[in-house]
Structure formats: C-alpha cells, structure tokens
C-alpha cells in the first residue's frame, strides 16, 4: 500500500520512516561507484587490470601495483567522489531553502567566493599547509553566498533574481581572484590557475585528509536536518504555520551548504554544475523527500565527478582534461534545459 516502512524502537522515542525506493537505489549507485572506482584506478599511463586492482585494494597486490594504486590513484578517486558528494548535497540544500531549482553552489556565487578565499591563501601565504585552504575557502564562500542571499532576497523572493545576483557576485569574486593572481609573479599562480579550473589532478592523501572533518560534520548535520528541509521546501507561510523556525533553520542549513561546498572547492577547485545537476537526477530516482534525496544526490554527485575525471583522463589522452571542464560541458546544456523546460 504505502511506499514506506516504519522503523521504530519500542522503548525509546525513536522512529524513522524509510521510503522503500531508497535502499535499492543507493545500493545500485554504490555498486556503480565501486565498479567505476575500480575502472578508474586501473586506467592511466600504467594500466592495471581490474582483477589486480581489487587484489591490490584488498592488500594482496605486488609492490609496484601497490604504489600506483594505493598511493597515486586511490586518493585521487576518493577526493573525486567526496567532492562530488559534498557539492551535490550542498546543491540539494540550496535548492530546497531557496525553493529554486536553479540554485547550486556555483550559481549562487558560493564556489567563486570559496575559490577567491583559497587562491588568496595560495598566493599570499605560499607556505601555508593544504589544510589552511579549507577555512579560507569557507570564509570566502560564506561571504559570497551570504551576499548573494541577502541581495537576492531582500524585498521578495524571486528565484531568478537570486540566480542573477549570484552570477554578478560570482563575476566580482572572479575579478578579485584575477587581481590577487596579478599581484604576484610566484610560481603558485600557475598552480592556482589549474586548481581553479576544477580538477582532481595529482590529489594525494594530504589533500584528502583536510576535507574529512568538514564533511564529517556537514554530512550528518544535513541528514539530521532533512525533515526541516522538507518543510522549508514548501511555502514560506506553510513552513511557519507548521511551526518551523524558518530563519533559524534556513540559516543553519545555509551554513551547512557553505561548509560542504567550500570543503569541496578547497579540495578540487570549482567543479561547475555538479551541485546543480545531481539533485535533479536524484529527485528523478527517489522523489523530493530529503531523507532519501540527500544521500542519493550525494551518491550521484560523487559518481559524476568520478566519471568526469575518468573521461577527462581518457578522452584526449595523454592530455588530461580537467574534470571541471567535463562537468561544465555536460552541465551547462542541462542548466539551459532546466531554464527552458516549462515556460
């Protein structure tokens, strides 16, 4: 009858409801992600057959395989997946709290702001460790996202205005980034430029580790607030009428989205359109209820970046096309499709 299964604890006031569509979808996506990871780990200048990849991952490979797979390629694949996951969840949250299907970290200027923060650290503090990028990106993302939010919402809440203001803010952040890069002749500029394009090129464990605490806080927090998201996704008046503390919840969720988005930007630069597309694809799979949507969007996002990285590496090999170029090449037409779908 209903698509829900109730999970209840008899003694404690703990109860959840599970949409029966979600577990199989998550399982399937997880399977695809694993397969894609194995494929991605085996692909490169030094190909490794899938069987060997699996054996190496389980700890039974030869020494050189071990180095190629576990030291070089595994962190890169993990960064790709986690970056996609974080961007997609941030996008899903932003789309719900702005009630705007076009919102995403890049469209709201959040990514550009985070990029500005990170580039400033790269250029002005060349000796700073990689983990310093995340807080800097967070500050930039918060400032840019907050500005967009404030300017785009004052005196009404039209979705398109938010997007337009976001485009403007992103352009300003981009201009400031260019200025920062123009102030120095240091070698970090070239590095920063490639990094800004959005790529997981050469990511190692030291790039992965600084991401984890931020995701460790952001992802569970987002999942716990899923039911607030459901209510905020309705009318503003309805949400208030249902007893949601709208400003407080929206602010918290915005902060979570900025955290996730900025952590992703700090790890891999600005990967466009992932945060826009993944939630839409996930909505097709499991519907708009956020309890299932958030994890599904995360999985889809992770898959997208993994795939984009793989395509970027193999398409014009030996030239590596940054994953961000691939996602933008797919994502911009999708954005246009969303824009012109109904009217």
């Amino acid at each position: 009858m209903s698509r829900w299964t109730a999970i209840r604890c008899r003694r404690l006031p703990v109860s959840f409801r599970l949409d029966r569509r979600v577990p199989p979808v998550l399982l399937a996506l997880g399977g695809i992600a694993l397969a894609l990871t194995v494929l991605s780990l085996g692909t490169g200048q030094y190909p490794v057959p899938p069987g060997e990849v699996v054996r190496t991952l389980l700890g039974g490979g030869s020494r050189e395989y071990d180095f190629v797979i576990r030291t070089l390629r595994l962190p890169r694949a993990l960064v790709a997946f986690l970056v996609g996951l974080a961007l997609a969840m941030a996008g899903a949250i932003l789309q719900a709290i702005t009630r705007n299907p076009l919102a995403s970290p890049d469209v709201t200027g959040l990514s550009a702001g985070a990029g500005l923060g990170a580039v400033a650290v790269m250029v002005f503090l060349p000796d700073a460790p990689w983990s310093a990028l995340t807080p800097a990106a967070l500050a930039g993302g918060l400032a840019a996202g907050g500005l967009t939010y404030w300017l785009g919402w004052k005196g009404g809440s039209h979705p398109l205005r938010l997007v337009l203001v976001g485009i403007g803010i992103a352009a300003a952040a981009q201009a400031l980034t260019n200025t920062v890069m123009a102030t120095t002749q240091s070698l970090r500029v070239g590095e920063a430029l490639v990094w800004l394009t959005g790529s997981v090129y050469g990511r190692s464990w030291q790039h992965l580790r600084p991401m984890l605490p931020w995701l460790g806080v952001g992802v569970p927090a987002a999942l716990l607030m899923a039911r607030h998201l459901d209510v905020l996704h309705l009318d503003e008046d309805l949400a208030r009428g249902l007893g949601s503390r709208v400003e407080w919840h929206r602010g918290m969720l915005f902060l979570i989205a900025v955290t996730l988005g900025s952590a992703a930007v700090a790890a891999a630069g600005t990967l466009g359109f992932v945060g826009l597309m993944a939630p839409h694809i996930a909505r097709r799979l499991v519907g708009p209820a956020h309890g299932g949507l958030l994890p599904t969007a995360g999985m889809v996002g992770g898959l997208m970046v993994l795939a984009a990285d793989l395509i970027g590496r193999t398409l014009l090999a030996p030239i590596e096309v940054p994953a961000g170029v691939v996602t933008a090449a797919v994502g911009a037409p999708y954005f246009l499709y969303l824009l012109f779908r109904n009217r």
Partner: peptide, 11 residues
C-alpha cells in the same frame, strides 16, 4: 549559462 559553458571549454 552559455558563457559558463564556453569559458569551461576555453579553460
């Protein structure tokens, strides 16, 4: 969106 797309290709 078009500008974003073309800029990505330029990059």
């Amino acid at each position: 969106a078009m500008a974003g797309f073309l800029t990505a290709l330029t990059q």
